[in-house]
Structures are given as structure tokens and as C-alpha cells.
Amino acid sequence: MPINSFVLLLLGGFVAGTFGAMLGLGGGALLIPFLVMVFDVPVHQAIATSIIAVIATSSAGAAMNLERRTVHIRLGMLLEIATVTGAILGGITANYLSAGILAKLFSGLLFLTAIAMILRARQHTAQEPIYTDGILPGSFYDDTNGKIVYYTVKKLPAAMMISIVAGNISGLLGVGGGIFKVPAMNILSGIPMKAATATSNFMIGVTAAASAFIYFAHGHLNPFISSIAALGVLAGSMTGVYISRKIKSKVLTWIFAFVLLGVSIQLFLR
């Protein structure tokens, strides 16, 4: 691989990882279009690389979040039954779909993600309700106000249903699926946003691993592209976690939403 391509791939992974970690998306949403459009990587190989990137981001981020105790490990394990089932089905069916259909599906997902992010940014100041009459009590220290937040989980069956869909999309399109899981946990189950994001990030590694082996077995894992991109994503996600403490997330959400919109339209027209 020429040195220019090597640096560009590392840099692309770094940017995807930085934005992914800052916005809690895993990095796949940016990495797949980057690999397809800049490097002309076949869609299935790009998805396999993205799945590896999701595992890297999840593992590095969850290690930090578990120590900070923002992850609800029991809820995460329970929802993983649903997401892993969905991911296995997605990984199997993806190999029977053409690259064109996968690209269109992904462009649609990016478009929906962008709209969801714009809506989230507009409601950014809304106070989130905390429920204490559910099951599986959890708590974490919120360093923005110096208080311990206590909460419980509501409507678990509904959250599990959405997790199956999120897992399926993850296996099919190589993204974390957090864009579905986080709102489900936050809005449906009443989990505070910080715990929902951290728990989703914890779960996406296992969901991605479930489909990674299938992509590997089908020969879609290019060692050069995946290794270099994963190393970039790993460094980027560590940087992203650091930067996210310094920059207003609302500003980043707006920027990212418009980047996603542009990329989704470009990918759809391709």
C-alpha cells in the first residue's frame, strides 16, 4: 500500500473514531462511506472493516465507562440477548443482498440518523425524567453536577424488541445500532442519557462481534484496510472521549448531522 493511502486511511479512521466517540455512534457511520467513496473498497469489505471499528471503539470506551460506573451492566447483558440474535440474522442475510442494495440501505440509515440528530439537538435543553418505580435499579456519579443519579428500568420488553431490530441493522449494515438503542433506553425505559449512551456503547461490541465472525468467514475482512483503519479509529476514539469533555456537544451534533446528510445523499446518488 502506498504511503499516501496508508496515511489517508489512518487519518480517515482517526476522524471517524473521533467523531464516533464524541457523538456515541461507534464511527461506522462515517467510515463506511469514506472507504467506499475514497478507496473504492467493496461495500461488504467496508462493512466488515466498520464492524471491526465498532468493536474497537466499544471495547476502549466501555473499559473507561465501566470504571466510571455509567454502564448498567445487567441491563446491557439482558438486551444483548436481543441484539446478538438480531445481529446473527443480519450477518447471515447481508451475504444474500447485492452491494447496490446495501449501499442504498446504508444511505437511508444515514439520512434517518441525521434527522434524528437534528431533532435531538433541537431538544437538547429538555430535562429528562427519572423513574424510580421500574426494575433493575442503577446509579452513577454525574460529574457535571456532582450528584449521584439513581434510576430504574421501565418497559423492558419494548426495549428488547427495539434491540432485536438494532442488532439486525448492525449485522446487515456494519454500524453499532446505537442510534436506535440509545433513544429506546432513554425515551422508552427512562434511563438517563449518560447511562443509556454508555450502556449502548458497552453493548455494541458484542453485537458487532456476533456478525464479525460471519463476515470474516465469508472472506470480507481485508487485513491491510481493517488493521490500519482500526488503529486510526482506536486512536481517534480515545481523542474523541477527551475532546467531548471540552466542546459543547450541541454544536458537534449539528455539524455531524449535516455531514451525515451530505454523505447519505452522495452515497444514494452513486
Binding site: I52, S59, E80, F224
Partner: peptide, 16 residues
């Protein structure tokens, strides 16, 4: 490279 990628794929299994 493959060993690194496969080890990364197994990391979530180890954590389960």
C-alpha cells in the same frame, strides 16, 4: 494483522 483483528473480535466474547 489477522491475529490482531481476530483477537479484537474475541475480546467481547472474553468480556461476556
Amino acid at each position: 494483522m489477522f491475529a490482531g483483528l481476530v483477537f479484537l473480535m474475541f475480546t467481547p466474547v472474553f468480556r461476556v
